[in-house]
Design a protein around this nucleic acid. Structure first.
Lengths: 199, 199
DNA sequence: GCGGAACTGGGTCAGTCGTCCCAGTTCGCG
DNA sequence: CGCGAACTGGGACGACTGACCCAGTTCCGC
């Protein structure tokens, strides 16, 4: 077999684990399923990772990085009005979920698991803290860009945004009703925009 | 040991399973853990239930019954204004979550699991449909009681309410920030009340 | 009080899990 | 070229899982 470095092997295992998690869920994310997906032997897993839990921690931590959410900033930049920006950001987020529902569901499962596992509980709360930070940054960016201001602390509004996206995701995952989800996204956008006022 | 009917045994096992689910999570909800909690033998389990999955289905179905959510109607009845009613309903819901966080988390885990399991997927979507129905009924009840009307279909607003409560729950479960959750509940109430207008 | 049905406990089975060990192979460096 | 470190594959271990079987015990209706 190909002889590759530990670092590279960790990356391959990590990517394989994410694929399995999205496709089959957390309960199917066994070390054997991961190495099968990565086409490695079981021993290679424990050569690269001390334990399964360490890999799980890596996945949670990668979400904290939040490259994905940062992508939404691009959407904001293209909009002509703040109203359009918020609406398009939420619509884009919904598209993201619909494009890869398993991934989003896997992240929920992972967060739930992390909250139950003392060793990972800290990571889960950091994950949400990061969500809130990203959302707050987007809101702040929006206000300065269009010379407007928010009538409540952006930290609080950021929580509202995250709650709305979570709720939107769970709702669509449960019944896959596209039309209803789009109407909900519109209502969510409106709920946020209510707090936008002239500078 | 006590000789009891199958029906009664199912109830005892059901209650024990719910306790284990709330305390230790879905991954710890093994048949052995359940019978230990119910102080029965393993054979009694399979005498009362054909399989573990059948019991899981029962639990999901019981959520669909939604006795708990119906309790919120009482809160609405006590309020003097619709604004107060919505605010108090959401605050009460938050209290409910805080009083038994494990239960709420267990329900999330169960829903996620149901969505991944073909045999249970239907139940999960029915569960959310039921949530939406209950929320819609509450909104309708509110409008008639105070002689007001909603500016959007209550079906759509119900979805917003469910999404907000889900988001509120996940947010608090992740960081257990009471103050932030209360501010979020207030924002959520405001988001809903925006759509209330004179008759 | 007796027969048959209802119910119970203990033991067992095959399968999966995370983890580990060890004999081998391959590589980079001197 | 050779040596030691890095890396690999296969196999194994003990623990746990859901499901099941069967020999007993207890209860109810007759």
């Amino acid at each position: 077999m190909a002889r590759i470095s530990v670092a590279q092997r960790r990356e391959l295992l990590f990517a394989a684990a994410v694929r399995v998690l999205a496709r089959d869920g957390l309960s199917a994310l066994s070390t054997r399923a991961i190495v099968a997906e990565a086409e490695m032997s079981l021993a290679s897993f424990h050569y690269a990772y001390a334990s399964r839990e360490e890999l799980l921690g890596d996945i949670v931590a990668s979400v904290v990085g939040g490259e994905r959410e940062a992508g939404l900033a691009g959407v904001l930049g293209e909009a002509a009005t703040p109203e359009e920006a918020v609406r398009r950001a939420l619509a884009t987020y919904l598209d993201l979920v619909r494009a890869d529902p398993g991934r989003e569901q896997g992240m929920f499962e992972l967060t739930q698991h992390a909250l139950r596992t003392p060793a990972l509980a800290r990571l889960a709360s950091e994950q949400y803290q990061r969500y809130h930070e990203v959302a707050a940054e987007l809101l702040d960016h929006l206000a300065t860009r269009f010379d407007r201001r928010w009538d409540s602390p952006t930290a609080d509004l950021a929580r509202l945004v995250v709650a709305l996206t979570d709720g939107l995701t769970l709702s669509w995952l449960a019944d896959r009703d596209d039309a209803a989800a789009e109407r909900l996204a519109a209502l969510a956008a409106e709920a946020v925009l209510t707090h936008l006022e002239e500078a």
